[in-house]
C-alpha cells in the first residue's frame, strides 16, 4: 500500500496536510520532509486522517514530533477525520495527553 501526502499552504498561515494510505517506516520520508518544511509564521497545521488506513510507531513518532515542533514554534495543530481505531491508538500511546499538556488543540 502506497502513501501520499498532499499539502496545501494558505496565505492566512494555515497549512493543511492530507495523508492517505499507510504511514509507516517505509513510507514516512515525504511526511517528515513536509513537517520539516513548515514555514516560520505558520499559525496552524491541520492534519486530515480521513484516508489514512494504517499508521505504525514511526508514523506516530512523526505526529508527536509535529506536536513538539508546534509547541516550540508557537503554532497550533488540529487533527481531523480520525477513525475510531486510530483514535484509540493515539489515546493509548498518549498523543492526546501530550497535546493536552502542551495546551494545544485536538480533534
Amino acid at each position: 500500500m502506497e502513501s501520499s501526502i498532499r499539502v496545501v499552504k494558505e496565505e492566512n498561515g494555515i497549512c493543511t496536510f492530507r495523508v492517505s494510505g499507510v504511514l509507516d517506516y517505509s513510507t514516512m520520508n515525504p511526511f517528515i520532509e513536509e513537517i520539516q518544511s513548515i514555514e516560520i509564521g505558520t499559525k496552524k497545521v491541520i492534519v486530515h486522517f480521513d484516508e489514512l488506513e494504517f499508521i505504525d510507531s514511526t508514523g506516530i513518532g512523526a505526529i508527536i514530533n509535529l506536536v513538539h515542533d508546534a509547541n516550540a514554534k508557537n503554532f497550533k495543530v488540529e487533527f481531523q477525520g480520525i477513525n475510531e481505531e486510530i483514535e484509540e491508538l493515539f489515546d493509548t500511546i498518549g498523543v492526546f495527553q501530550i497535546m493536552e499538556q502542551l495546551k494545544m488543540e485536538e480533534a
Binding site: I64, D91, T92, I93, G94, Q97, I98, Q101, L102
Partner: peptide, 28 residues
Amino acid sequence: GHNIPLVVRSKDEVAEIPKTKGVMIGGL
C-alpha cells in the same frame, strides 16, 4: 503508552485487563 495485556479467566473468557493510562516514555 503500551497496548493493554489480556487475561484469560476460563475457557470462555478472555478480555483486556482494566485500563490504566500514561504517556509513552519520551513523550513528556
